[in-house]
Nucleic acid binder design. Structure first.
Length: 155
DNA sequence: GCCAACGTTGGC
DNA sequence: GCCAACGTTGGC
């Protein structure tokens, strides 16, 4: 069992949007970064847990919790010419972009702000707090995940 | 809106 | 394969 963090811009897709999807489930399409894709394609398992992180907003931070509910999915948006995620080099026989589905678990009563996360002396492996990291999907060490989850719930 | 940092593209 | 130019990310 692994732990993850998924960034999203809440104006486009928020933890509330996930909660309101049928079964609280949504395919995480639109990722066009190879490292992030490889995490989804190669390393995620059903029932892994994931933080939902809100970026590019008033209070960037961890907004809630989801679990990986399906793996091995092909991102359908790569085949849609009108989509901004269209990839002319991808074919159904040889898709380039893979994804997983996330299912809503929990929304925290308050967002756990990035500013607070950065103050935690024992959060040092998390890519989020490392300078220059622009990964949209990243692994979270189990001890750091548990610490942040506790922090988010008792806020 | 600024800008640092990063990823991708494409000419050579 | 190098690397300059460009586009994007995302906190502040």
């Amino acid at each position: 069992m692994r732990y993850w963090l998924f960034k999203t811009e809440p104006d486009a897709f928020s933890i509330d949007d996930l909660a309101h999807r049928p079964d609280g489930t949504e395919g995480w399409d639109g990722v066009r970064n190879y490292q992030a894709r490889n995490f989804m394609r190669d390393q995620m398992s059903v029932n892994d847990l994931a933080f939902i992180y809100h970026s590019s907003c008033k209070v960037p931070g961890i907004a809630g919790l989801a679990r990986i509910s399906q793996t091995g999915l092909v991102d359908p948006t790569q085949f849609i010419p009108d989509s901004k995620y269209f990839d002319p080099k991808a074919t159904p026989e040889q898709p380039r972009w893979h994804m997983v589905a996330l299912t809503f678990v929990e929304k925290f009563s308050q967002v756990l702000p990035l500013s607070l996360i950065k103050q935690q002396a024992n959060i040092c492996e998390l890519s989020l707090v490392k300078k220059g990291s622009r990964l949209s999907i990243m692994p979270v060490a189990s001890n750091e995940f548990e610490w942040l989850l506790e922090l988010a719930r008792k806020q």
